[in-house]
Design a binder for these strands. Structure first.
Lengths: 220, 220, 220, 220
DNA sequence: CATGAATGAGCTTTCATTCAT
DNA sequence: CATGAATGAAAGCTCATTCAT
């Protein structure tokens, strides 16, 4: 069920299949790290196979091509993001729920910088690979649905103003969360102040929570 | 005046110097486009030299190495951004000034996607090149100073709440402006809705202006 | 047994392994000739691969780098020299043994000019590559041991004077043997007389034998 | 008189001519060092011009080509060797004269390793450049004449055996002197003992003097 | 199932040299 | 006299990929 890559899946439960699955997983994990660090062009097949302690040939055996491997990597990070989001506890109170969501996002991107660099890489390539992935499009609804639900309940309770579109609120939260990690290196140079020092992330999360709640709350 | 690259500058005003300057400029312009489209690793010297209608060798003649060329490209886009910002008219009214600034930022990134992809590329490389550039660090103060000034005046007039740090407001504006363009491809796939269609950018700018003003305004 | 290069060895005895071994050997043989003729810098990878009827890429596949290939070449010529020396019959009589050794050395360098030019090339590089080779240091003892043995026996028989250091005698023999081949081109121009003509080598060997024996013989 | 290179000589005594001469000399000096260190192929025009603090173009202006520059370098070292030899005091006593000559040779090569590596480089190229030089052939007679004279006087005095050919004695002395410096790096690795340590050269000179005198002296 | 061997195009960079004042 | 600008070939090396068991 987890193996739906077009090129090659590992079926069955025998010992041989298990080791084959391990090989495949090692490659995928290595590819995620290498592509995240070096980008698509900078991440060579050889770097990946040697980090995975496997052989170039195995990458083609399991994934068919560099491009399909990259697609599998993207699917993987999207899926893990989705799972992490699903696991996060949902608060009853709309304001608390939104606060928790923002803090989760800010923290997730910082703890998973590979997600950030891989998405940037994919955007550099104008979304070419996501477009070819059937799986990648499945993961969108959850986050938006969650926000839609929070907004609906908040509006009903009178704490959020009406007319807010879930998509806009989603983008507002994600952009502020993502950018702080995504651009931390150029920002650090530009601002002359390190953004990955201790406390900096929490301060930023506090500020974003404060601003978003002010921006959404119902007029007095 | 524009030629402060360490490796080779073009001096004088003769015909030969002018054509040399043209060669250098062509290379720099071509490099900006190629690096923006293909990233650092994907942007090959050959792609650049052929777009510049010059020769590989000339890149090394004028810039010394691929890395130094990339640094020159970064310096160029930072400088142009800075100049554009400086040229934008400053409004007297703090709210109008902030609104104008947000709209300027949202529009600038979309009209200069090369700025966005080059910065992302640089962040993929952990800011390695910016760190090596003496010029790149000069361009930070203007934007922050402008925001500081707007906040100060707004606070004095009672329309902005006190205690706001210019850096935070800067990041709030830039993240929302930048991200919308930076991640438009993955977002379009994710949201199932194109973000570069007509009107989408203006709608987003409106939403951001609205949210930021609400987030900053003084409590009634 | 012959494959102890760090980067890639060819194992097994199947048909594929045999052809792989042949590829490796061809490259090594070609590299020996090319480096001997053109030196390290003048000996290009392309010259080598095309002489070996292989591809540039294969050199890196089997040897890793130009430098490591050169090290393998040096190891090869040292080893063959060592083997040839070991194969030469050892005479019982010390004077005959020394005579034979000198004639062997004089002849070997002339018949293996690649040994000479490769060693000169390595000295131009200040012994950089030999220093990186583990194997190269194994080949020293034989020659010195042989000379030590001859001197000991000669001294015991009263035909060689006492107090002679094997190292000095070794250097005396090798320098006179080596130099005659090593510098034959500049010497020919300098002396206005070809040193590689017929008979010239034998005359020189005679002279060296005569001188060395006189230099070493016990005082009457 | 010193400037007889075919391509370009600097005539006259004006200030401009003097500075031109200085440029030429700088290039020649730099070329000597670079070719001696890196060989002919490894010694690039750019390395030379930058060490000479001049421009690539000037090398072509003064010397015409890389090959002709190398020829000029060879001529220079031969000439300086010749001059040094001529300056050495000639002893009346044949044995003392020969001893002094050997010590001079051993010391000269060690103090002028560039002479050694340049000659080795030239031999790698099969004497191609020396063959093209008119000057290089002028420098041979002195050394041989000196040895011939010493041998003649020694023979007359009964201290050297008759029948010795100056050329052979010359080669005997030069090979032992030259080789000790020429191959010091591979020898050091091979013998497991540094040949450029303090005292090693003097010991070697002593040994060679001793051996050569024994080899040449008249039978008792 | 798995893997060593092979491939040819491409990479960044440096080469010796000439052009045009 | 002198020099910046330009050139095209070639350097060492890495690339993604396929072949042949």
């Amino acid at each position: 069920m987890a193996n739906t890559t077009k090129t090659k899946a590992v079926r069955g439960t025998g010992a041989r299949e298990a080791s084959a699955q391990a090989t495949r997983d090692n490659i995928l994990k290595a590819a995620t790290r290498i592509f995240a660090r070096y980008g698509y062009d900078g991440g060579s097949i050889e770097k990946i196979s040697s980090l995975a302690k496997s052989h170039d040939r195995m990458i083609y055996y399991y994934f068919g091509s560099k491009e399909q491997l990259f697609i599998a990597v993207l699917e993987g990070i999207y899926q893990r993001m989705d799972e992490a989001e699903a696991k996060a506890p949902v608060r009853a109170d709309p304001i608390e729920a939104l606060t928790a969501l923002i803090r989760f996002k800010v923290a997730y991107y910082r703890r998973h910088p590979e997600f950030v660099t891989l998405l940037n890489t994919e955007n550099l390539h104008k979304g070419r690979h996501v477009a070819k992935s059937a799986k990648a499009r499945e993961f969108s609804s959850n986050a938006l649905d969650l926000i839609a639900d929070i907004l609906r309940r908040g509006e009903a309770q009178g704490c959020f103003r009406p007319g807010l579109r879930p998509r806009d609120v989603y983008l507002l939260i994600v952009s502020t969360s993502y950018f702080f990690t995504s651009n931390r290196f150029t920002l650090s140079a530009f601002l002359g102040e390190p953004l990955d020092g201790p406390g900096a992330l929490e301060e930023w999360a506090d500020f974003v929570v404060d601003c978003v709640l002010r921006a959404l709350r119902a007029q007095d």
